[in-house]
Nucleic acid binder design. Structure first.
Lengths: 211, 211, 211, 211
DNA sequence: GATGAATGAGCCTTCATTCAT
DNA sequence: TATGAATGAAGGCTCATTCAT
């Protein structure tokens, strides 16, 4: 039978109700009983689909988290394959492009990212932002090493500082989701945030990018 | 009776045990029964001092949160009293000084700030960082207005962007606490982070500070 | 269609999986869902064959339980048809023969008897051993009456004692199954256990059998 | 305040209700909710006394199980300290005395032993009887070794057979509890059961005890 | 025969808080 | 101040069984 408009499957009903409950109370305080009640479904029905509350949360956000993480992995992987010269030349473009892709994807899965960023305490996704930060930190650190090898004079910089700055970047980016900023607005701001960061890095490293 | 070395008051014992439990499990998952048990105290005794688990958390971190918030309020209040010229001239110094004071205070109350930043889900302090960000945002926004009134050409900038950037700044600053960075290291990094931000702002606004 | 080697019928799959689950967890803790899952079959399919978990257990062990019980009924029935003299003369042989048959049968259905003896809590078979004991008790009691009627001087003996002794006998016999003793070893031990019991009875009754 | 007749403490009420529930349904099927409901008490109250259903069962029977096991340990320990001659001379008396003590104790804690023997599936006490059997088996085996060392000709006997016979003995003894046999009757039967076993052993070993 | 989603009562346990002493 | 037994709602989860397809 075709799934018509007036038909909502048990699983869909669970997903809708769960999303709401998790957004309202966060993972830990969300009540499975509430979820199934809102969904108009029984507990038994729920456990036919998922083994636990955690698995349900996972089903709601896992794919999206994975997507973004691997988007960064891919981008950074490709970046690392470039020569030092190419890296320096394309750096801004590449990083803006990756961020652009992420933001588009994020806004196509707005609720899921709100869950990831605000409601994941108690799940394995608590440190989602931190995982992005780690990737960014590693990559930036490596790039600075490359600059040095290329003979470019760079002020010494510590991994901890990169970490701190990267945390700031990503937290800032995700503010657009947290505060329900409209997509186009968000994209503009994030681009500006990146310019902001580029300027910051130039100042910190004492170099000029993209020139 | 004087509180001697080998004597620990009921309240102190509760505080010590509570701090540990909150740090370990976060506010929501912390168990009051565990706390009083670790403290070697009874639930009844506890409720002689506090009306609820939330009030206990409040007692542990409220003063510190308040202190930092009002530190910013005072700083910003004083800043707003200055003339536009003075603001521009002293801005960097004032903001670095405020941050310096905050970091010093934070490291004197390291555990409390860890509680505020990492363990406050479920309390009114969840948005502690956000409250700082709001203050910073308002102040920065006002300052830009002042610049314009002074006839200084400033690229148009939106409050939302300021918010995003400020979120990044404070999250970055508190990373030092989250990752147990030693105090002196932290101060150095935060100073660099501020330079980073100053450069970013100059780029965003198209002006040069402190020159 | 002929049931070929590479085909296992739904029912067989259920039986195999059920046997394992019951042996592992006992009847009460066994999970029907686990059974059908291990069997690669659905609950619906299961309920096409059996009305309940209990009925399934029954299907696994019922025939075997029945077989042993009727083996004893037949043996005892035949024994009771004999004259007192014949009873006394053949008693040892008959009882050893019955036990011999039972042990052979038991070892041909080893798992089933393990289920009956160790995993039947919660089913009507909990008292399987007890039912054997009751038969043995009744029969022994009748035989002693016969001896008296034959004018043989027998120390007075109470049905309760017979019950106690018989319980010991059967529990001992089934230890061979419980502890996975190899068949031939078991037969030897059970024979010795019977000699042990014969000696015990002679002492208790003050008579000498088979002499 | 003195605990008067019309006053029953929460703990007592729990114990009484629990005993009944465990006897009715066995440990696994016993429902804690039923227990506290029968006791007229709340679940919370229960968990103030015990950490789990298992701990409750333990509280009801643990001491009694321990008592009987250590009674046997003590008896066997003392027996092993005797010379071979003394062992042979006193064996019957000692073993009858230990059994006598056990039976007395058992009947002073009738319900508890019923729990231990019939209702302990799912607890660490499932193998209570088996533990007694192991002790008896070890001791008997050692004694037979002693006999050989003393130069007494003993038919070879295997530990497995001793185990089987001992299982029979203890199961028989506990039948008195299982079937609510009156105490004095039980003592008499058990004494006869022991004579029965003595005769059995003499036959099996080809020796004469106590002569 | 077989499917497998759904039922809904039931499980053991933990929680913050109260209150008579 | 302090005790600590008691509350009772709520938690996540499992169960044997049913039934429309």
């Amino acid at each position: 039978m075709v799934n018509q408009d007036n038909v909502t499957s048990t699983l869909e009903k669970i997903h809708i109700a769960a999303k709401q409950e998790f957004l309202d109370k966060g993972f830990q305080l969300a009540s499975l009983r509430n979820i199934v009640k809102s969904a108009g479904v029984t507990t038994g029905a729920f456990y036919g689909y998922y083994k636990s509350k955690e698995e349900l949360f996972d089903a709601l956000v896992g794919e999206q988290a994975e997507h973004v993480l691997s988007l960064f992995d891919t981008t950074l992987g490709n970046f690392n394959k470039l020569s030092g010269e190419e890296q320096t030349r394309k750096m801004t473009d590449i990083s803006e492009d990756a961020m652009f892709q992420m933001v588009n994807y994020m806004y196509d899965h707005h609720d899921e990212f709100k869950l990831l960023i605000l409601c994941a305490e108690g799940t394995k996704y608590v440190d989602f932002i931190h995982q992005l930060v780690l990737r960014e930190t590693e990559s930036s650190f490596a790039y600075i090493g490359t600059l040095k090898q290329m003979g470019i004079k760079v002020k010494p910089i510590n991994k901890n500082l990169i970490h701190i700055v990267s945390s700031g970047l990503f937290t800032g980016v995700f503010e657009t989701i947290v505060h329900d900023m409209p997509k186009e607005e968000a994209k503009e701001y994030i681009q500006q945030l990146q310019q902001f960061h580029t300027a910051g890095w130039e100042q910190l490293l004492g170099v000029k990018f993209g020139g």
